[in-house]
Design a protein around this nucleic acid. Structure first.
Length: 537
DNA sequence: TTCCGACAGTGGGGTCGCAAT
DNA sequence: ATTGCGACCCCACTATCGGAA
């Protein structure tokens, strides 16, 4: 090769990852990663950057590896056997590992499990234990070296000399850290010029959480620009040149699953070329169905028309980020909002909006959103630009939630920084009929490190038995639990599961027989689906 | 010097299609 | 016909680092 680069081994990537993981400072991690990537050819660097971010393929790439814990467990057995090689196998290059993973992703059909297994075993047998460990971390998207996409972009900026702002913007529109690394090394001058283009998905902008309307005013000032927050599928629709593609929040092309969304976009927008952002909600009788029901339409393909009609998607658009050849991500929200209104046939396709000058107006709008079966409201800073993939205070979400008391009936040992703590708790409600506590799901959210420490001690004192990762305890510790929705569950004996459960506080003052009853939970569930005007079956 | 924004890490609910059983 | 697996839809929350104030 005439590139002037020495072929980089996968082992070197592992060494760099380890080194970055050992230090705690972000700057030091960035230095280590940039020095490593700087030694690589553009192609190697693009693969390595993706690997370090916990991806095998670009995020917009729809290829699937089809390798999970089960297959890996099987393949790992090969390491326990004596290798059949007479001479030591050649350690693979980064590019070789990538090509092999591409082959694995390409396998499908009957006997695919066996074929994937053989390829995986072949790869494992050429790697040291430590290299296998890091390969697995990459495959499962959990590299855990305290550096992911964010710090990799800083490393790319550092090694290419391209300002960080340009690198970040390139990432936002290219949607792949590997593509950014490649371009930064191959043509750094061009990196600052990339922008949104038709049919290449862009990471959707995200919102921070707010907890009351006062916070919204505090952050965004008056008046507030509010929208309904719908509980559905985030969709980014690219249309033009006689074509429409729909992308999900994680950039999968979901066009084939949502023909009615395509139809509504085509009928609802009069425009040459556009990329619009919105939420698709499944609606029956004018009211949104529970998210759980909507899920039945996700990734469901080749579906008969009568099924689609029984659970139709409605579209609520709230942004436009590309229009007739021009990127709008640098335009303020006020402008994008106006342009969106100009290209819709009717306001019906837009997210419901209001401008609230007072606390009272904001509250009323929020109440109306929740009353009509939606999640809550969004507040958007009128002057803010569209920041793809960024979660910040420019957009704030205010969601409704409810609270019940549960008793902890079991707990699971944590992983990583939580190893040594019981950090995942099985929550029980009281069933008066059987006199038992029945599980309504698990949560690991809400406690501080100190509380985990304390909770672990208390739970171990209440331990009844231990099975694998699960420690069953005497039901004694009561916790107040916030959740966003009660779902029907086949997994839990109570028949219900809490969506987005998190512990608000520990109730040392309450006895387990004072926790919420199953009857009460059932009543709450029935009330919530009545609000949505939806009934099972 | 203190404050706060962005990032990383830990893990929850559900449903589908597909291959294996 | 049923089951197990892998992918992916929705995520919330706390700790930490380092630049902003």
């Amino acid at each position: 090769m005439s590139t002037g680069f020495v072929v980089a081994l996968f082992r070197e990537l592992v060494e760099a990852a380890e080194a970055a993981g050992r230090v705690s400072g972000r700057k030091e991690k960035v230095r280590i990663l940039s020095e490593f990537l700087g030694r690589l050819s553009p192609e190697e660097a693009s693969i390595a950057a993706r690997f370090l971010a916990g991806h095998v393929f670009p995020e917009y790439d729809n290829r699937e590896l089809g390798v999970g814990y089960s297959l890996v467990r099987e393949a790992l057995k090969v390491l326990d056997q004596k290798p059949l090689f007479l001479v030591e196998p050649q350690p693979p290059a980064i590019t070789e590992v990538y090509r092999l993973l591409e082959r694995i992703a390409g396998v499908s059909g009957e006997g695919s499990r066996e074929k994937k297994l053989k390829l995986l075993e072949g790869l494992f047998s050429r790697l040291s234990r430590k290299e296998v460990e890091y390969l697995l971390r990459i495959l499962f998207g959990e590299v855990r070296i305290g550096a992911s996409t964010g710090l990799l972009l800083e490393a790319i900026s550092r090694l290419s000399g391209v300002p960080y702002g340009d690198v970040l913007h390139a990432y936002m529109v290219l949607s792949d850290v590997g593509d950014v690394a490649f371009k930064a090394l191959e043509s750094p001058a061009a990196l600052g010029k990339v922008d949104v283009s038709l049919f290449h998905p862009v990471k959707p902008m995200l919102a921070d959480m707010a907890y009351n309307v006062d916070e919204l005013f505090q952050e965004h000032g008056s008046p507030l620009h509010l929208e309904y927050k719908y509980d559905g599928l985030r969709v980014q629709i690219h249309m033009g040149r006689g074509k429409v593609r729909v992308f999900s929040r994680r950039l999968s092309d979901i066009t084939e699953y949502v023909p009615d969304v395509v139809e509504r976009a085509v009928e609802g927008l009069h425009v040459e070329e556009a990329v619009v952002d919105g939420e698709a909600v499944a609606v029956i009788g004018g009211a949104p169905v529970p998210f759980q029901e909507l899920l039945r339409r996700v990734r469901r393909k080749n579906e008969r028309e009568d099924f689609l009609k029984s659970l139709p998607f409605e579209l609520h658009l709230f942004d436009v980020i590309y229009l007739n050849g021009k990127s709008l991500v640098r335009e303020p929200y006020s402008t994008r909002s106006r342009l969106l209104r100009e290209i819709v046939v009717s306001e019906e396709i837009l997210a419901k909006k209001t401008v609230a000058y007072t606390r009272q107006e904001a509250l009323e709008f929020y109440e109306s959103a929740v009353r009509s079966g939606n999640e809550g409201v969004m507040s958007k800073r009128h002057s803010s630009v569209y920041k793809p993939g960024i979660r910040g205070s420019d957009w704030l979400k205010l969601k409704s939630f409810d609270t019940i008391d549960c008793v902890i009936i079991a707990a699971e040992w944590g992983h990583g920084r939580r190893s040594g703590w019981l950090s995942d708790y099985h929550l029980g409600v009281y069933d008066e009929e059987s006199g038992r506590f029945l599980s309504v799901g698990k949560t690991f959210k809400g406690l501080s490190d100190a509380e985990f420490e304390e909770m672990t001690k208390r739970l171990l004192q209440l331990k009844v038995r231990e099975e694998g990762y699960v420690v069953y305890v005497k039901p004694e510790i009561v916790v107040e639990v916030d959740y966003s929705e009660i779902q029907r569950s086949k997994r839990y004996p109570s028949g219900f599961a809490l969506r987005f459960a998190r512990i608000r506080r520990i109730r040392f003052d309450k006895s387990p027989y004072e926790v919420t009853t199953l009857r009460e939970l059932r009543e709450r569930y029935l009330r919530s689906i009545r609000a949505k005007r939806w009934s099972p079956q």
